[in-house]
Nucleic acid binder design. Structure first.
Lengths: 121, 121
DNA sequence: ACAAGTTGTTCACGCCTGTTTCACGCGCGG
DNA sequence: CCGCGCGTGAAACAGGCGTGAACAACTTGT
């Protein structure tokens, strides 16, 4: 890889999360996360479409590279693995939000998930 | 993703509300709302005819895809659910207005509950 | 090649959310 | 004051999703 390719390196910033796909690495407030290959890949694909709802079919296709079979819960399982590690690394933050019947959405939010209740005082 | 496909996407703007039917998502001042399938669908159909009075029969037909049966209060129930979540996300705004005997109308208005209402105990 | 640890996949149980329906009471309009 | 439309809470039901664990596949060290 040349210096030109280096300058193109993708850097995904999601709140206190920094994801470097080309380095196979994600950092939480600077500290490297210990993610497996699939976990990181899922986080990357979620982060590339941050704040957008991604269906299980889309995520499976992006991460596993093939079509999701009916009844396959792989995405759910890896979403959980990610949630556990992210919660462990950044307590008080909520990143992966479930949209019932649709899929998941990545967005950095404080644990108070009372969607839109602000004290403007 | 081409620019052509992107330009076809429906975007409904209702005051501080942004509704993206193709993404199954609605935002309040940029923040994603947590709406169920039916709630979102109802909001979409209301927003597509914003500022127009929609009868329960019309709304039910658009959202549920079949004819409203006599005595069915489903539309009322979901209007309430939407009102609660919208009020929670955007305090001080009133979006769904009741037209007695006719139906509902979606329009962004500041909540002006100071017009002559007092508690006489 | 074998053992041990790690990662990936599948399964089943049950909670929790969403949907439908019902009932009660208030309010609007006549 | 009366009647019906509407607001509202909650029960009942269904199924999507969270979760732990067993099992398989892969990696690493000796």
């Amino acid at each position: 890889m040349s210096a030109a390719a280096e300058s193109q390196r993708e850097v995904l910033q999601v709140g206190p999360l920094t994801i470097l796909p080309d380095e196979n690495l994600a950092r939480a407030s600077g500290r490297a996360l210990m993610l497996s290959s699939r976990e990181l890949r899922l986080l990357i694909e979620l982060a590339r479409r941050a704040d957008r709802i991604m269906s299980r079919e889309q995520l499976y296709s992006l991460v596993w590279g093939r079509e999701l079979r009916a009844g396959d819960r792989s995405v759910d399982v890896y979403v959980r693995k990610l949630r556990v590690k992210l919660e462990s690394a950044l307590p008080g933050w909520c990143f992966i939000h479930t949209h019932f019947g649709f899929g998941y959405r990545l967005a950095p939010e404080p644990s108070q998930h009372d969607n839109g209740r602000f004290t403007t005082d």
